[in-house]
Design a protein around this nucleic acid. Structure first.
Length: 409
DNA sequence: CGTATTTGACCTGCGC
DNA sequence: GCGCAGGTCAAATACG
């Protein structure tokens, strides 16, 4: 029986810690960035092109236009993720990266070549010992039960090599992380040399072929490896009502100074006092920064939230009121951004993940909503500059500089 | 009773 | 050609 050797989560050597520093062997290169560089929030374009204007249900055209993707490049509706990527978009064959929720940025994991992030084209096949593992669609889906002709299936299978994939690690007790989309489980397999099974999910949205694989990370069973394949061509399902519409943003610094300004009973561990953040590098097509912060200030209330991604010539700005930050930072949005931008290098990005208890976390950012307005409490700095507090903070230094999330290639 | 999950069978690609 | 491993299907089962 498949998965019968899977140990129950309760038997793991150590219970998953939602907020804990990363563990080796993850490596990270953090460049030097000064606060003088962190000024993009003064940019008037910061509030332009909010995501809802770029991505509407069933119409990703504006997004692709903004991303500089032609209609031909944009994924068709039926096979949304098929796309030829330009040569310069190829992820090096040796590029093995995984974003880990509790560490800084994407990072290389040489010790495990079976896991990677890839733009997925034929040249970007995930480097690994078992190529069959690394490319979507290598397996079944060609069952004689299907009405699809073999030739078509084979063509599709080849084309599926272009399916963009994104993998990241999340420290979680749950094997199926809530990410805003609804998934149907369609398979489960034991993984060779691993006691943990791999589960296969499909997006339940009609016509959506996005899939994800979820498996427990062998090197650290407290982490779950989630691999997404494809792009959602639809909006997020309605977000269930939450107990609160206010948010409380805080940093998860566990080693640096902790002003501990938060007076509430939440798990806030410290304030982030560095106001303004950003780093733009338009010299190449790499995502150089991801930023979440407030966009209007002075009042100290939950007045706004914004998300900004800079990737070469492209700039992604998402601005909604704070009560919608929940959606603003939905990782799938970020995935769609990354996966939609074939010219974008993925190795400079800190993805964010939703974990299933109402907390959001990225490698260096956590968002928590607890029914009260504690934003200023937890930010410490307020928002008098009208900009955004830097939510990204170096776990070692506690400085909160954007260098935490910038990793120049 | 409708929906979601489980799970054994089956398919494909790859390496030898 | 064969065996292996990963991926998928779909009937059976579980669940609310």
């Amino acid at each position: 029986m498949e998965g019968k050797n899977t140990p129950p989560l309760s038997s793991l050597s150590s219970p998953p810690q939602i907020f804990s520093p990363p563990s080796p062997p993850f490596s990270l290169s953090i460049p030097t960035t000064t606060i003088d560089d962190l000024n993009f929030l003064d940019d008037d374009t910061f509030l332009e092109n909010p995501l809802p204007d770029l991505v509407k249900e069933g119409d990703f055209g504006p997004l692709y236009e903004w991303l500089g993707i032609t209609d031909e490049d944009a994924p068709p509706v039926e096979r949304p993720v098929k796309r030829s990527l330009p040569p310069d978009a190829i992820v090096p064959e040796s590029f093995e990266t995984v974003a880990q929720s509790e560490s800084s940025s994407f990072f290389s994991i040489p010790s495990n070549p079976d896991v990677a992030v890839s733009n997925n084209n034929n040249s970007s096949r995930v480097a690994g010992k078992r190529p069959a593992e690394s490319v979507a669609g290598d397996g079944g889906n060609a069952s004689p039960r299907s009405d699809e002709p073999d030739a078509t299936m084979r063509l599709n299978r080849r084309s599926e090599n272009n399916i963009p994939k994104l993998a990241f690690l999340t420290e979680s007790e749950s094997d199926n992380l809530e990410d805003g989309y609804k998934w149907r489980k369609y398979g489960r397999k034991t993984v060779r040399n691993s006691p943990y099974p791999r589960n296969y999910y499909r997006c339940t949205a009609i016509g959506c072929n996005v899939k994800k694989r979820v498996e427990r990370w062998l090197d650290d069973p407290t982490h779950v490896l989630t691999t997404y394949e494809g792009l959602h061509l639809h909006g997020l399902p309605p977000i269930p009502p939450t107990p609160s519409k206010s948010f409380h943003l805080y940093n998860n610094c566990t080693t640096g100074p902790k002003p501990d300004r938060c007076s509430c009973s939440c798990r806030c561990k410290g304030a982030v006092a560095v106001a303004g953040a950003g780093e733009q590098n338009r010299a190449n097509n790499a995502i150089t920064s991801v930023h979440l912060g407030t966009v209007s200030g002075g009042s100290g209330v939950n007045d706004g939230g914004s998300l900004r991604i800079v990737a070469g010539e492209n700039e992604f700005n998402y601005n909604k009121h704070m009560q919608n930050v929940e959606q603003a930072i939905t990782p799938i949005i970020l995935q769609n951004f990354m996966l939609s931008a074939p010219q974008t290098s993925l190795n400079n990005f800190t993805p964010m993940t939703i974990i299933n208890n109402g907390h959001y976390q990225s490698s260096l950012m956590n968002v928590h909503h607890d029914g009260n307005n504690h934003r200023q409490d937890c930010f410490g700095a307020g928002s008098s500059n009208g900009g955004a507090e830097d939510l990204f903070r170096n776990k070692s230094t506690g400085t909160g500089l954007l260098e935490d999330i910038v990793n120049f290639s």
